[in-house]
Design a binder for these strands. Structure first.
Lengths: 376, 376
DNA sequence: CTGTTAGCGCGTTCAG
DNA sequence: CTGAACGCGCTAACAG
């Protein structure tokens, strides 16, 4: 009963705030409802003439609807959110880019935030996006300690698809996962055919997904009856520096493997850099295989043989899932599997005939070049 | 008068919707207002005891405030938005990453969307972010045709800072710009000292910023009285492929430059790849300088001498601007300038003593390798 | 057939 | 400490 406001309000401070439907209505001499109907498209509710008046008034004021208000009313936003653990990781970055590129084809806009490795940031941002803003969420890349935050994840209350999250123990919700075994098997077959028998692995325990790659590798090696001395299973940081360090350690081994699988291209890339620096030939002395097939793999030196993760396909699976949900089917807890395949480039070649690299002439060069290095 | 809803509604469907202040209030046996005050922090409006009750009820329900509703009410969101023209471009990607990493230190969260090179998409997303959601916007990377959309940009009605946008003719609003002249001058000095006199440029006209780099290069060459034949000013695509194409054209020239500046690392990287493929030595036969200092520059083969854009500093300038605005000063239309500096790595070396690369033995190899290439 | 009124959703805030 | 209005755009139900 105390409605004092309405038309009596002063118009002078409207300059700063963007115009609303009310402003347009005032200008067109109509009610807000009429404006809303007119703006929604041709409709039997408003005459074409009125509609034109509205459209013109809106254009003159530069009116843009407030999406937030619309969303609050309960309309679908047509917006999906990406929360990436660490946008600096090349594979995660490419997944995000791909999702963003492809989303429009599925009728979605997309926004992204970076959790910067912090679980609390992730939850804060998730809460923001979930507040009716986004119809769904992608979780790209796992957090190192995400297992601790399960309850919070589950409470999100927004349809969510996880990507790059390892297997169901690492993330029990709906996720896109890569069939690890086949890709790694291809890599091992490839190396075996090239004559390699002593094959090492450079891994990291930072994330569940990386651990799984190592476990799968070990199991495949056993399956095939190949020797796997403990020192050929290296652990290092999930970074380019980690790769360099691993390569140094390999070069200092009495009997290093003739071929090595890295848990990620990022690590493999560091290995190549260090090999080049130390004068170790790849693949002449040691073959290196990556995992991920980041865009850089094609431009490294030598170009990198690696297990390709089909990122475009992963993005499509994830987007399709949202689309079919929107259509009606509440298909809960899916596991959307895609396959990885080996891409052979320059970093793998025949196993050295005269045994491991260590015995060869240039090994001296390695020692000379970096004798004070840790891990030796 | 027809208010049927309210308390009479069935409670069973509350499970799906996240809890609201009303739910917390009901649980604590208080009014929504009391809850709101209590949640806002200690205040004379509610007793500490009541506050505890509220806090506990909120925790039990897993209550999270709806950020959208809060923002609608006119509160600051503490959120900044990034609109990136093309997240695939390495420099833009790194600027975004850096902004996202550093924003928390300035008290902001940050969300990002990719305009995917489309102006309409950009404006749609800008409208979303502007709808009270974001307190400010970063525009990262210019659109090829952005000049056409000036009025729309200006109407955004949100404090905006542009990054990677060329000079004030390209973007008249507040922006962070790189002092181009000094960085390029350093690069030329460096090449000059190495004995290079015939220096070329591989540019692109896609974006204003790239055009400016070329113009600055030309003006510096004139200033120094160095010859600059028209065919040493190459134009190509802003991509790795564009770089490869440019290198092929350079190799087919009768008298190619002994050193070349590329308008961007991305292009320079393609040039290195093609040189390696064709057996042209860098820097033995030709020196290559990039622009941007993307992270990859340090890992290419050879590593790339390039003009470093101080991205961290750019991000800090931009974030500081928002921060000081928030504090009160409405400092409008600033131009926040940072300086670029040369980083010398392996891709530059002394000018060949026996004249341009073309005259040397391996040139034959180049021709053998790729005689059917366009641009020759 | 056209236009208007009124109220939804949710956190905030002023007058009681 | 509570009741009720507010900021928004949208839309069901009514009035002309």
């Amino acid at each position: 009963m105390k409605r004092i406001t309405t038309e009596a309000a002063e118009p002078q401070e409207h300059r700063t705030k963007p115009p609303t439907v009310r402003d347009v209505a005032r200008r067109a001499g109509l009610s807000q409802a009429a404006v809303s109907y007119a703006l929604a498209g041709p409709s039997p509710r408003v005459s074409d003439q009125t509609r034109q008046r509205v459209l013109q008034a809106a254009a003159e004021l530069g009116y843009q609807p407030n999406v937030l208000a619309r969303v609050m009313k309960g309309k679908e936003a047509g917006l999906l959110g990406i929360i990436v653990r660490d946008g600096g990781a090349p594979t995660a970055a490419e997944v995000c880019r791909t999702l963003m590129t492809r989303a429009p084809a599925y009728g979605y806009d997309i926004i992204l935030t970076d959790a910067g490795n912090s679980a609390t940031t992730l939850l804060r941002l998730a809460n923001l996006m979930k507040s009716r803003l986004c119809d769904g969420l992608f979780l790209v890349g796992e957090l190192p300690d995400q297992d601790m935050h399960w309850d919070a994840y589950e409470r999100l209350g927004v349809p969510t698809v996880a990507l790059l999250h390892g297997d169901e123990r690492a993330y029990p919700g709906t996720r896109v996962s890569v069939e690890r075994r086949s890709g790694l098997r291809e890599a091992l077959d490839h190396l075996y055919e090239l004559g390699h028998r002593h094959i090492g692995f450079v891994g990291s325990d930072l994330l569940n997904g990386l651990k799984e790659r190592r476990r799968t590798f070990v199991s495949l090696m056993r399956e095939r009856g190949l020797p796997l001395p403990k020192e050929s299973l290296l652990l290092t940081d999930f970074s380019r520096e980690g790769g360099r360090d691993a390569m140094r350690r390999l070069m200092s081994m009495a009997s290093p493997p003739t071929a090595v699988l890295a848990c990620a291209d990022l690590v493999a890339s560091g290995m190549l850099v260090e090999a080049r620096r130390a004068g170790v030939a790849v693949p002449g002395d040691i073959s290196v295989v990556g995992y991920d097939d980041n865009p850089e793999a094609e431009y490294s030196c030598p170009t990198l043989t690696t297990v390709h993760q089909p990122i475009a396909e992963m993005a499509d699976r994830a987007l399709e899932w949202f689309q079919s949900r929107r259509a009606g089917g509440a298909s809960s807890l899916d596991n959307l599997v895609v396959n990885a395949t080996l891409v052979v480039r320059e970093s793998t070649g025949p196993a050295p005939l005269d045994g491991p690299a260590k015995g060869r002439a240039h090994t001296g060069a390695v020692r000379r070049g970096r004798s004070s290095v840790p891990g030796g």
